[in-house]
Amino acid sequence: MHSKIIKTQLAVVIHAEEEFDWTRNEFHKKNTQVSHVNEFSEFCLQLLSMGAALTIAVDYPFVADKNAQAVLLRLLKDYPNRVEIASQVHAWVTPPFFHDNKESEYHSYICNLTAEQEFAKIKSLSDFIELNLGVKPTTYLAGRYGIGKNTCNTLKKLGYNTDISLSPFADFTRQQGPDFTETTNQIFSQNGILRWPHTSGVISRSLLVTKWLNRRPQYIKKLLAHNPCLQLTRKLLGLKILRLSPEGVRLKDLKKLAHAQIESGYPNLIFSYHSPSLKQGLTPYVQTAQDLQSFKQETLEFLKWYQDTYDAQFICVQDFTG
């Protein structure tokens, strides 16, 4: 296969976080339960045993949990070159708190806080990670992909060098969040911070159309308009916008999306999921025992397929070489 000659790197990013009801959008600082630590630990070991490297983006409640701390410390000790601890700020559970016990949906996006408040929360989590895990994070993930105009300057001041908060093709403005509809999967630098987007993109029945759209996201909004002709066009093309994640995306589409990104000129990918998806009933993606089995199996199968097909290198985000 000609794509084997392309140098490709893949980072597995785990959003290690507390459990809350995704359907109710209740962003309460008391939502700190982490009951899935054992499931998280077991699957991390499975991934590592197959040769994967893990970037574990931890939020405040996850680090505060003593069982999670023990798991993370063990992973760092046993796999020092293949486990990275990144920070993930969920504004509603990260001190200092500015809005009583519950955040509005607007303030659940940390980019909607003032520059001073955003700085305080990122610093708080960074210091907490260093205190409890003995590592200083250099990779940052904004919870809910809430990256804003002040974030890169804050990250630079706090010693970060990489941000993975961009979510190509996604529009969170209905939830008062950011709009990434004109963002591609291109990796670039901004104010001294490497910006590596969470891999998302277009697939369709036509590789030519797929490549064209993945490079020109400004046309996606037009194609998604409520227009009968465009709806028919989308159906005929089999057009889908997906994230490279086992959450709600089946194995065949994960393969299509990875191939489409590489063919579109974006060979360095992020494969991601949320840690609560490793326990039945905690996220919308894993509600049944069958869901859980499929989630794990298809994750393992995708990673093996990707490595075999593209002779890919599994890396931590911090080890990206360009």
Rank of each mutant, 00 (worst) to 15 (best):
Q9R: 15
A11K: 03
E26R: 15
V34F: 06
H36K: 06
C44S: 09
Q46N: 15
G51E: 01
A57H: 02
A57M: 09
A57E: 01
P61T: 00
Q69T: 00
V71C: 11
V71H: 06
L73R: 11
D78S: 12
I85K: 00
W92R: 01
V93I: 11
P96K: 06
N101D: 11
E103S: 14
L113D: 13
K121Q: 10
E130W: 02
P137Y: 05
P137V: 13
T138N: 12
G143Y: 08
R144W: 07
G148V: 07
T151K: 05
G159D: 06
F169D: 00
R174L: 14
Q176I: 06
N185V: 02
S189N: 11
Q190D: 13
I193L: 08
R195Y: 06
G201S: 08
L224F: 13
L224T: 11
H226T: 11
L232S: 12
K235M: 11
K240M: 07
R243I: 05
R243A: 14
L244I: 06
P246L: 04
A258S: 14
H259T: 12
G265D: 03
Y266I: 09
I270H: 13
F271C: 05
F271E: 02
K279S: 13
Q290C: 08
L303V: 01
W305L: 07
D311R: 10
A312K: 04
A312F: 07
F314V: 10
C316E: 10
C316D: 03
D319S: 15
F320L: 12
T321V: 15
